[in-house]
Each structure stands twice: as structure tokens, then as C-alpha cells.
Simulated scan of single mutants.
Amino acid sequence: MAVRPLMILPPVIFAGLAGLFLGAMWGGDGDELPSALIGQPAPQVAVGELGGRSFDPAVMADGELKLVNFWASWCAPCRVEHPNLSLLAEEGVPIYGINYKDQPQAAQDFLAELGDPYAAVGTDASGRVAVEWGVYGVPETFLVDGDGTVLLRMAGPVLPSTMESRLIPAIKAARAE
């Protein structure tokens, strides 16, 4: 029996697509999402108050290296990263928290339960601040230098492994400049 060329076409197309998908899964740094903010000034977008607390966006250029962390009480990875943020705060890294699309009381309860590592905290009830920062989802953390320039973006929770491999080296490099 002769093999017809059209009979070979579906398996060839399937093999080609499978190869493309495998290459996309294992090639490059798939954990890192691009950010147009790297090397650019931090957005100067006002955040709302959370429990009578907030911060002026001008603090981004106050001369001090800092982290900006987008979080929510309903976010399970935010709960996982929280002890690591507390460790960084204890080490003297100022962290500014932006509570994303959350109920104010739930956010306050979250901080009361787990502790408050933030130098200041505000709320982004509408999600507008997150859009300006280019946030894909919570948690996301940005390293901002004293001039207000975004140096690093970390999508996902700040874990011990990412602290050691990316965040702490970036903080040390920024402080050495």
C-alpha cells in the first residue's frame, strides 16, 4: 500500500508544534517577565490610605534604596513571601507596600496577623497604580534606587532562593555604586 503525502502531514505538523512548545518551556529564563520600567523612573502615582497610613510617591526619589512590594491578603504567595520581607526589613531595607485590589479590613487583619514589615503602606483599590508599574499579578517586588530609578523587578513571591540569587546581589550592587 502506498503512503499518501497528505497522511504524513498531520504527524509532521504535530511534531513541529510539540518541538516549539518544548523549546519555549525549557529555553531561556521563563520565570522572568519583561519590564519596561527597568532603568526608568518609578511611576509617581498616588496610593490610597490603608488604616490611616499611606505614602507620598515622592518617597521613591528620597535618596534611599528601597523595595516596593505589591501584595494582597487574598494572595497565597503573598503569605509565603511575608516572612522574607520581614527579614529584609529587619536588615534595614525599607519596604513600601501597595495593597492591591483588597478589602481594607482584610489587609489590616493580614498585617496584624503576620506583622508589618512596611516603612509605609498604601492601597490600590482600583488597580490603577499596578497598571502604571506594569504589575502582572501579586506579589511583585521592585528594587528602586535613591534617585527613584527602577533597578529590578521580581514577579512572584520573594523566596529564600530568589533573595540569594537575585535580590540580595542587586541590593549589594546598588549600594556599592
Rank of each mutant, 00 (worst) to 15 (best):
G48D: 05
A46C: 06
L37K: 08
F55G: 07
I38D: 00
M25C: 10
G52Q: 09
P34I: 04
G19Y: 12
A42K: 10
F21V: 15
G23P: 00
V45D: 01
L33G: 11
P11C: 12
G51T: 01
W74K: 02
L65H: 12
L37F: 01
G48Y: 08
P11R: 08
G23N: 13
G27D: 05
A24R: 15
P11H: 13
E64F: 01
A36R: 13
A72V: 06
G52S: 05
A46S: 14
L65M: 09
L17M: 15
V68Y: 11
C78A: 09
G48K: 03
P41G: 11
L22D: 02
Q40S: 04
L22T: 12
N69K: 12
L65E: 06
G51I: 00
I38Q: 03
G28P: 13
L87P: 00
R79Q: 09
C75L: 04
C75I: 04
S86L: 04
V45R: 03
I13S: 13
F21D: 11
E32Q: 10
L17S: 12
E64S: 14
P83V: 04
A18R: 05
Q40I: 11
S73L: 09
P11M: 07
F70Q: 09
F14C: 14
V47T: 10
A76M: 08
G23Q: 14
E32P: 00
G16L: 15
V47A: 06
E49K: 15
V68Q: 11
A36N: 09
V80C: 04
G27W: 12
V68N: 05
D29V: 06
L37V: 04
F21Y: 13
V80S: 12
G27K: 08
A15L: 14
G52Y: 02
H82G: 07
A61M: 06
A42R: 07
S35G: 03
G51Y: 01
L87Q: 14
S54E: 06
M60H: 10
A76G: 10
V45W: 01
F70P: 04
S54D: 02
R79W: 01
F55R: 05
S73P: 01
H82M: 09
L37Y: 09
N84T: 03
V59P: 00
C78G: 07
N84I: 03
F14V: 15
R79K: 13
D31Y: 14
G16D: 10
S35H: 11
W71S: 10
P43N: 08
A72L: 08
A76P: 09
E81N: 01
V68R: 12
E49C: 06
H82D: 05
V59K: 03
I38R: 06
N84Q: 15
A72S: 13
E81K: 03
P34C: 03
L33E: 10
Q44H: 02
P34R: 13
D62R: 04
H82C: 07
G48W: 06
D56A: 09
G28V: 01
D56G: 07
A18G: 04
G30V: 15
G19M: 13
P41N: 03
A61D: 03
A46T: 11
G28W: 08
S73H: 05
S73T: 07
L67R: 10
G28I: 01
L87D: 14
C78T: 03
W74R: 07
L87W: 02
V12M: 15
D62C: 11
F14D: 05
V12G: 11
E81L: 04
N69H: 11
S35M: 07
A61Y: 03
E81F: 01
L67N: 11
D56K: 07
S35E: 09
A18C: 14
